[in-house]
Design a protein around this nucleic acid. Sequence first.
DNA 1: GGTTTTATCAAACAATTGTTTAGTTTTGCT
DNA 2: AGCAAAACTAAACAATTGTTTGATAAAACC
Lengths: 209, 209
Amino acid sequence: MEVKDKKKHILDSAEKLFAVKGFEASTVRDIADEAGVNLAMISYYFGSKDKMMESLFQERMINTKLKVQQLLSNEHIAPFGKVEIMLDDYIKKVIENQSFYKILLCEQVMKKNPEIIKMLRELKLEYAAMFTELVKEGQKKKIFKKNVDVVLALSTMTGIVTQIIINKEHYCEFNNLEGLADDDLKNYLHKKLLDHLKNIFKTILGYES
Amino acid sequence: MEVKDKKKHILDSAEKLFAVKGFEASTVRDIADEAGVNLAMISYYFGSKDKMMESLFQERMINTKLKVQQLLSNEHIAPFGKVEIMLDDYIKKVIENQSFYKILLCEQVMKKNPEIIKMLRELKLEYAAMFTELVKEGQKKKIFKKNVDVVLALSTMTGIVTQIIINKEHYCEFNNLEGLADDDLKNYLHKKLLDHLKNIFKTILGYES
DNA sequence: GGTTTTATCAAACAATTGTTTAGTTTTGCT
DNA sequence: AGCAAAACTAAACAATTGTTTGATAAAACC
C-alpha cells in the first residue's frame, strides 16, 4: 500500500474510534490495533497523537468551503433554491460522515487543540460571510425578510442535524424504525430533515413559495 | 462544612473541569485541586471517578421531569402557551447550566457510561411521551396540525439551543457582541432564542396566533 | 549491485493515570 | 473524659499512557 493510502487508512481507523470513545479515551494502541499497524507508526507518520487529530480535521474539511462558494456564485439558481441545495448538501455530508461530525461536536465543546479551533473559527466566519451574501441577494429581490440573524440560522441547520444524528437510536426507538436497514434509515432521515429544515428556513427568511 | 455540601462542592468543581477539558482529560488530581480537597476524597466520597460522573448527572437532572409534568397538567394554560413555557424553561436551564449541558452533549456522543446512558434514555422517552400528550391536546382543539414528529420537534429545541451555547464565542464575534457583560449576554441570547424557537414551533405545529 | 533513504518493528522509556493503603485527625455520642 | 466512627491525609500501588530508541527489512536511486 502507498504511504498516502496508509495514512488515510490510519485516519479512518482513528476516526471510527474517536467517534465512539472520544479522543482522550482512544489510545494510540487502540488506533494502531484498529488500523492493523505498529503503534510506532502513528508518531512516525503524524508526529504525535494530537497532530494526527489535526490531520484528520484537515483531511475531512477540505472542499467544504469551495463547494458552498461555487453554489452561491451560480447565477442560474434562485436564492431559496440555493438555500435548499445548501441544506441538502449539509444534511448529506453529516449523514455520510457521522463519525467525524460527532468528533467535531466534541472538539467544539472541549476546545482543547488550538490548531483545530483556529481552523474551525476561520471556516465558520467564511461560511457565515457567504450565507450573508446569499441572504442579501434574497433581500434585494424582496423575497427574504429584513433582519435575518445569519449565525442563528446556520446554527439552526447544524444544531438540528447534529442533534438527530446523536439521538438516532432514540429517534428510531420512539418512531418504531428499528427494523430499518442502515441505508434506508439514512434516506429516511435525509428526507425528513430536508423537509423540516426547508420549512424552518422559510420561516426564518420570511420566504413564501 | 457538611459532608453533603462538600460533595456538592466537589461536583461543582468537577463539572467546571469536565466542561472545558472533557471527562477523560480531567484527572482526579485536577478535580481535587480545583475543589481544594485531597485526591483520595473522590474515591472516598463517590467510590470512583466514573461514579462521581453518575452522581453529577443525578444531581443535575433531578426535577427536570417533574417540572414539565406539572406544566402539562395545568388546565388553565392553552396548548401553545404550554409550548412557550416549555421552550422558555429549557432555554433558561441551559443558559444557567452551560457547563453541564456541554458535558451532557459529549456524553451522548461517547455513550461511555452505561448508567448515564440509561438515565438519559428514560428521561428522553418520558419527555417525548409528555410532549406527545401536549401535541394531542392541541390537535384535539384543532389548533395544531396533524402528523407532528415530536422527537424531531424536541431535537429542534435542544439542537438549536445547544449549538448556540457551543458557538457562543463565534456568535458574539460575528454580531459584535463581545463588549457585552455576561449577564447581559445571557439575557440577549435568551430573548433571541425564545423568539426564534417560538416562530419555529409555530411552523412545526401549524399554529397561528 | 551496492548504497542511501524510507518503512517497520519489538522493546524500553519516563510520566501520568485511578485507586488503595495505612496511619492520623476530627467528630459525635454516652 | 473516653471511645468508636467518620473524615482526612501523604505515600505507595500497579497499570496504562504517548513517545522514543535501536535494530532490521524494504524500497529507491545511481
